[in-house]
Design a protein around this nucleic acid. Structure first.
Lengths: 341, 341
DNA sequence: CTGAAAGCGCTTACAG
DNA sequence: CTGAAAGCGCTTACAG
């Protein structure tokens, strides 16, 4: 009730200073003890931890970020939330990062360069400790922002040794080639490639498809169909019908994603189109349900969970300033032979 | 190169002070002009905005949060990322919040009370501007943390008028009753209810199921089967087999989620079990693919996207301190009659 | 309508 | 191994 009380803006929050007072040490020592930095005398450290626990002290991330120019936030950029693939990737990343004390800020770019730039600008302002981005296909402006921020960054889904930096993924092109080869090996000669929305990885798979056909002397049989609609089961069914109508002797279709392939399989069932008798169907990613289809879907199993985990590990090393022995990790893929092709 | 240069920790960042200098006004005025607060003289405001634009000024969220005890972060708590339902909800919430300048911090609780508490503790430290949580079923500790934080909070998926606060959703119990009633109306008398992992909303649907049976004088026919495994298509198929084996005269099954029901439908196809001839199948949520099944799945369409949008709107009103006329919004549901039941 | 001062709660950079 | 001082970049609370 002093008449000359200083102006205060008490937030009611337990602060570092409170802990210091309770432990009988300086705030600096509390800061160091709690972060496990340097060697703080064992006894002091114990007192600090005890005091922090009794007071229920929770460090203020904003103050920490302001003082150190680095937050505990990790930004993850993915194209869409509607593709299970990215959600599983995200889940794996979170499982790695959250127990280590990081929080994840998720940015959805909708395959749009300017959206990606806007998201990056707003997220980079938070001074994230790290960055995980999908693929290597971003605008020069976006790349410059990442570069200029100095925030450690790991690219996922593709392995991009040429681009430098760090990446965890697999070769989309080779995977596309391998599944097409599988179709060729089973005797198919009129193989179409069907893709939905624009996605650089989808394009790479298409290249692999072309390579496989060329390798079999079937370069003139390349038949790529691209829809601008977003991927869905219904679209897969429609595409199946369309391809068989436009090129009736098509004997196999490689769909760029399992949701399309699943839709095609169900449409075939409804329409009485025999799979693989009349037409073989192959997908990509081995999403949930592909093994349950009738017939079960032949596809490429992609290691997105492992990619997420490895990327999280690698990023944590980078954030701690530790050396990363393998900057580009190729986790491979696996062709899963089931009954549809 | 002054010999008495003060110790500085230049971050290279463009600050409010830089903008103030460039615009020839005080930092305070820049702060106010940029936030659109109060009436700053039109001319000054214009100068400030121009200067900010030329300098490429981006406010520092950490400094802002520290000074104002409020960040631009909105915390969203969901049980799982593996259920499409929650991802769609999340997506809708983000679509509402991101354009308004908020960032979303996503917490996954895995249906675990202590995980939820840990996530809340760590996220609340960020002084979020708002909170969106799934359902009303949390520990007393978690509720106390939310309450004590003073952060505006909207509950989603259920409408909880009794609990107070704010909520957007629909009655899970009534929805469970309605779909069961649909089964009864089509002449089914041996109806089983199959649920997977523990979820309060799943339990409510089960209550609705019981009510419907009781209403039809079939209280003694209640047959609930609960698995502890996480929900999946494969589990749905297995549960179908199990129910028909254990209670052979079952003539309809209400699955608590569409993924289970889809799996059951595909298993039936494989096993040659006629649907709905031998057994009718109904699901819940109308997830992607349910309309593509063979036969198409009868289910309950739930408005998760609308729930996400409305919750985001409501939360923004609360965060701006505006009054909310309807604190509890019931968005209803819709029984979708297709061929499986 | 505008501003000078103080403060938000931490950590950095120096010293010792 | 420990600490006093300054600073991170904003906004609050007073004044005028």
């Amino acid at each position: 009730m002093s008449s000359a009380a200083p102006r205060r803006r008490a937030t009611g929050r337990v602060t570092l200073a409170d802990v210091a007072r309770a432990a009988g040490v300086s705030p600096i020592t509390v800061s160091r003890a709690l972060r496990g930095e340097r060697a703080v005398a064992r006894e002091l450290s114990d007192r600090v931890h005890a005091a922090a626990a009794t007071l229920g002290y929770v460090p203020d991330p904003a103050a920490r970020a302001l003082a150190s120019s680095r937050s505990s936030l990790v930004v993850v950029l993915i194209p869409k939330l509607s593709n299970t693939l990215f959600v599983e990737l995200l889940d794996a990343v979170q499982n790695g990062l959250v127990p280590a004390g990081y929080q994840t800020l998720i940015g959805v770019t909708h395959y749009d360069a300017s959206e990606e730039e806007a998201v990056l600008r707003s997220f980079l302002a938070h001074r994230p400790a790290g960055l995980i981005v999908t693929g290597s296909d971003r605008s020069a402006a976006a790349s410059a922002m990442i570069e200029g921020s100095g925030v450690p960054c790991v690219r996922v889904m593709e392995v991009g040794e040429e681009v430098g930096g760090y990446s965890v993924g697999f070769s989309q092109r080779e995977a596309g080639r391998a599944i097409t080869q599988r179709l060729l090996d089973s005797g198919r000669r009129r193989i179409a490639y069907v893709a939905a929305q624009l996605d650089p990885r989808t394009l790479e798979r298409g290249q692999g498809y072309e390579e496989a056909l060329a390798g079999a002397g079937l370069a003139d049989r390349v038949h790529k169909v691209q829809s601008t609609e977003p991927s869905s089961m219904a679209l897969g069914g429609a595409m199946l019908e369309r391809v068989l109508r436009e090129v009736p002797d098509t004997d196999a279709i490689f769909f760029c994603n399992d949701d399309l392939a699943q839709g095609a399989l169900l449409a075939a069932l409804r329409l009485g189109i025999a799979v693989p008798g009349r037409v073989a169907v192959a997908g990509f990613n081995d999403l949930a349900g592909s093994d349950q289809m009738v017939p079960p879907l032949t596809t490429v199993a992609t290691p997105r969970r492992e990619i997420g985990e490895r990327a999280a590990q690698m990023l944590m090393q980078l954030m701690r300033g530790e050396p990363v022995e393998t900057p580009h990790v190729d986790l491979g893929f696996r062709v899963v032979r089931r009954a549809s092709a």
